[in-house]
């Protein structure tokens, strides 16, 4: 088992008032940044007559208009720009990905700079330690090229001083594999040989794996996994689903949520008591989908994320489709950052 409990204790265990103070400093900066650089946000702010100077504290968050995926899609057409006017930097090289492919409607591309990759690499490093990955271990990462995750976690070599990845921060090896149910044999086959401690997969591929090992008569214990992290972009595993999978595989199952349009990644700790949000990187709110106002504590609503760190395509007040409630109490694991509790998660 890993000996390190936290990747960045100074941040992860921060007092709540310190977190608030940090956010209070970062929010106006981000608002000013996107107003000055993102045509998408400027248009939205201008529509309601909001100026960056109007946002001075966290209280002012409610003044900022909420944006959702439909707005992003519309902007692609309105600005006649694949990035929908969201791109804040022109002068730096960027890497562009497509988080998901809707059956209809516009594809929402996201871009990352070296700086963004570095910030996310650390966010993911905190998560990997949180789900029990040990320094130097092997992690199997299912993904596909369109998805930015592999660029953030796998061992890339970037020009000196420009960027790091999660694997390099934790001195981990990775096994990149396709997140494709049809190719589950490759994941299983490689796990048998290299015994990764952790695998990142999706609900669909996990389901395929359960069927595959049953059919092939493979004991899931022989794959070396200690933890299976199931990554979903909308519905994380329900408590019932988790239980069924855990029984079938005899492995610990953890959840990860990614709202990729806003480069948001959150996962639970070993206590499985909500998904930790790194509040030095994001402000989360839960909004009533109709009134677009914050719901009461303990009530469910739509997870709304303000990105505080991204250089290229940060979104402010981005309303996702994920139904959650929030828990601001310190977690049993010691982390003080807010936890999101998706519906049916507990």
């Amino acid at each position: 088992m890993s000996t390190q409990r936290y990747f960045n204790p100074a941040i992860e265990l921060m007092e709540r008032n310190e977190i608030k103070n940090l956010q209070k400093k970062l929010l106006p900066k981000m608002v000013e940044y996107v107003y000055g650089r993102s045509m998408f946000h400027r248009k939205i702010f201008d529509k309601v007559g909001l100026k960056p100077m109007d946002v001075k504290s966290l209280e002012d968050l409610k003044k900022i208009p909420v944006v959702c995926k439909t707005d992003l899609e519309k902007a692609v057409k309105d600005f006649d720009d694949p990035m929908g006017g969201r791109k804040c930097v022109e002068e730096k090289p960027v890497f562009t990905f497509a988080p998901e492919f809707p059956a209809e409607g516009e594809i929402i591309y996201v871009s990352l700079s070296f700086g963004d990759i570095t910030r996310l690499a650390e966010a993911l490093a905190r998560q990997w330690i949180m789900v029990g990955v040990g320094m130097g271990e092997t992690v199997q990462v299912q993904g596909w090229s369109w998805d930015p995750l592999h660029m953030i976690v796998n061992p890339q070599i970037f020009p000196p001083g420009l960027s790091v990845t999660t694997a390099s921060l934790l001195n981990c090896k990775t096994i990149p594999v396709e997140v494709m149910p049809e190719d589950i044999g490759r994941t299983v086959f490689m796990a048998k040989f290299f015994k990764p401690s952790t695998v990142l997969m999706s609900r669909k591929t996990l389901d395929a794996m359960v069927k595959f090992v049953e059919k092939e008569g493979i004991n899931p214990k022989d794959l070396g996994y200690r933890t299976v992290v199931v990554r979903e972009s909308k519905n994380v595993l329900s408590a019932d689903e988790r239980k069924i999978f855990e029984e079938k595989l005899g492995l610990k199952i953890q959840s990860m949520l990614d709202v990729r349009e806003n480069l948001f990644y959150a996962s639970d700790c070993l206590n499985i008591d909500g998904l930790h949000v790194w509040e030095d990187m994001y402000i989360v709110e839960v909004l009533d989908p109709e009134k677009l106002e914050s719901v009461g504590l303990g009530e469910y609503g739509k997870l709304t994320i303000t990105n505080l760190f991204a250089e290229v395509v940060p979104l402010v007040k981005y309303r996702s489709d994920v139904d959650v409630t929030l828990n601001f109490e310190a977690c049993g694991c010691g982390r003080t950052h807010v936890r999101i509790i998706p519906q049916n998660y507990k």
Binding site: F95, D147, I157
Partner: peptide, 16 residues
Amino acid sequence: TSVYTKFSLKDFVLAG
């Protein structure tokens, strides 16, 4: 991806 960083590209879309 590492190779592409050597070229300092304006935009790099990695496609599946």
